[in-house]
């Protein structure tokens, strides 16, 4: 464990709290892409299958995995029941079939090993790298976003972005660490996808302005 990885995981936790807080206080999930949320649940379920097979790694690891799966499922539960009337499917129209299909193809072509567990792990890594697209697409369609929603997107993106210095750190100082090419490539791609958003977030939201596309 190093500071970047810890901050990354913390950022992920914060993003979850922001999203749930936004929905609970405004009693609405407007501006939040249901499709992205479904993709994230798929990501965590497929990645953390090892909760049931692998020997115990650490309390931290197990706890975080359970929190990510549970909070993701809870978000979807809220969006599909209590706050369903506030969700507008007409602007949440990204075709996620392509993201699911593309991730599956990548996972099948370059798995770390030819086992179900390793293919599903790779699938989840690729899918995570693009899972934000329906959300970003929705922001683009409406041309603006609530500030709280942009905080959520930022914190979620910062999670993977912070993993990049973590990998550099592990590569340099952690002799036992085995860098995982798929995670690094997908992590870089994911951060690149966010870069436009990061830029607008930094130049507008951080200066107290509304998130609005030029």
């Amino acid at each position: 464990m190093n500071i970047f990885r810890m901050l990354g995981d913390l950022s992920h936790l914060i993003s979850i709290f922001i999203l749930l807080h936004k929905m609970q206080t405004s009693k609405s999930c407007s501006g939040v892409s249901f499709k992205s949320q479904v993709l994230y649940l798929v990501v965590y379920v497929f990645r953390y299958l090892d909760l049931f097979t692998n020997p115990f790694m650490s309390y931290y690891n197990t706890l975080m995995k359970i929190v990510f799966i549970a909070s993701s499922a809870y978000t979807i539960y809220l969006m599909s029941t209590v706050f369903k009337p506030t969700h507008d499917p007409a602007i949440d129209t990204f075709k996620i079939e392509y993201l699911l299909g593309g991730s599956l193809v990548m996972a099948l072509l370059f798995p770390p090993k030819w086992t179900f567990m390793e293919i599903s792990w790779a699938f989840s890594i690729w899918l995570e790298s693009v899972a934000i697209l329906p959300q970003l697409f929705m922001v683009q369609r409406t041309g603006e976003a609530e500030t709280i929603t942009t905080h959520y997107i930022f914190a979620l993106g910062a999670y993977r972005a912070l993993y990049i210095p973590n990998w550099i750190w592990r590569y340099m100082f952690d002799k036992k660490a085995k860098l995982e090419t798929i995670a690094v490539v997908a992590g870089l791609a994911q951060t690149l996808l966010y870069s436009d958003f990061f830029y607008i977030y930094w130049t507008k939201v951080m200066k107290g302005k509304k998130f609005q596309l030029p």
Binding site: R5, D9, H12, R47, D50, N54, P55, M57, N61, M64, K65, F68, P112, W121, Y163, N166, K178, E180, A183
Partner: peptide, 10 residues
Amino acid sequence: EKKEHPHDEL
């Protein structure tokens, strides 16, 4: 040694 379980990140 955790060779068989390489995915130690989240």
